[in-house]
Design a protein around this nucleic acid. Structure first.
Lengths: 209, 209
DNA sequence: ATCTCCTAACTAACCATTTAGTTCAACTAT
DNA sequence: ATAGTTGAACTAAATGGTTAGTTAGGAGAT
């Protein structure tokens, strides 16, 4: 029986959500081991015991942050429409989707990196489900198969193609702080916004005969 | 005044080096915050105080591990010969170089990821120097410029091209544990060894008119 | 006798987790 | 209405295990 108080401009956040917001930032900045429960409490302006009351342990809070991230990314993916006649259009749509996904959930990037660094155990399952359900893998496979059947595309394994395509899209999002310095990119936002089109174009031409 | 005892089959490692070996593994597995100095001492079969005797602090030991990694990668890069007439050959050589670099220093991958996750501060300088000195950036820029001047290549910014090329090469090396599961790659070593050729081919065709 | 390499045993601080108790709003029986 | 009951949300202050870093000293070579 949830009531919407129409006087409230923003719905008031419960303390669990406030904690989650604080934890998201703390974990993104310092990682699971580097994060301090006291800091999260301080950020959230809340008593430390409340964290244990709501989440049970530091580890469980961390998992809750990850689940929340993956859930939102999944919701975002579900809203996406990758249907199109033209392979070029689909490829560009997917590139744009990845770009926006990272742009909108930047605090997920460091968590993602550190998780992969420690073997990916905490992500493998939820991430696999997320990607399967989004239908991107299927879409991609049929895209390549169709292109090859119609003789437009060269003979390239779908798996290698995706690994390359994802890498092209994702690498800069991840490595920007170092890449910018090495390659003297001064206007990061501009470069970032140019990427999807350039990547889609390069990839498509790479596939074509 | 380093002496080489010719009787010894393998040159005996000094304790500093033994510590460094142990630290490399511990830090790769758990990161700076997650690593335990006592574990490093145990791995090295050495008293904990020796670590402080030789390295001063956990943080300095960590930095020593990074410097050692970057130094060896730099040495490896210096041995590489990227000279070739044919753009296709150069591209493939660079792809193969990246592949081997990651294969031979896999314990650097998690360290690299976690460093980038925390802003890249500890890497930016040494890494920039490494890449500059290896001459790869210059080689790449002139490669693209030459290809465009001779009319073989389409008009693509060198920076975007590299970001894409590195991403294609590096992504799988990094994300294999999750990627394999999502895309059902069962023979990781095979897939890994196929990558450089496939990547170089895809990239080259992407550039060509 | 002094320098290098090494050890066992310590300590001080840190930090996740617990505990014991408080507040307050909603519900219930009188 | 009112006193009593409950349970969820909350707090201040421990507790105690862990962990980076220290110390005081010993063996062996030069």
């Amino acid at each position: 029986m949830e009531e919407q108080n129409t006087n409230m401009p923003d719905k008031p956040k419960g303390s669990a959500e406030i904690i989650l917001d604080a934890a998201r930032e703390e974990f993104a900045e310092f990682g699971l081991e580097g994060a301090r429960v006291d800091h999260i409490a301080a950020r959230a302006n809340i008593n430390k015991a409340m964290i244990y009351y709501h989440f049970g342990s530091k580890e469980k809070l961390y998992q809750a942050v990850i689940d929340d991230h993956v859930g939102r990314i999944a919701a975002f993916a579900a809203n996406q429409n990758f249907d199109a006649e033209n392979p070029a259009v689909i490829i560009e749509k997917i590139a744009e989707y990845m770009n926006r996904m990272f742009a909108e959930r930047r605090s997920f990037v460091p968590i993602f990196l550190r998780e992969i660094a420690s073997g990916g155990d905490r992500l493998r399952d939820s991430f696999t489900r997320l990607i399967r359900e989004s239908g991107i893998t299927a879409r991609f496979r049929s895209l390549i198969a169709y292109g090859q059947a119609t003789g437009q595309f060269r003979d390239i394994s779908a798996e290698h193609a995706v690994a390359s395509f994802i890498g092209m899209n994702v690498f800069y999002q991840i490595a920007a702080p170092v890449f910018n310095r090495v390659w003297e990119i001064h206007d990061e936002e501009k470069f970032r916004s140019e990427r999807p089109k350039v990547v889609a174009d390069l990839f498509l031409h790479g596939l074509l005969k």
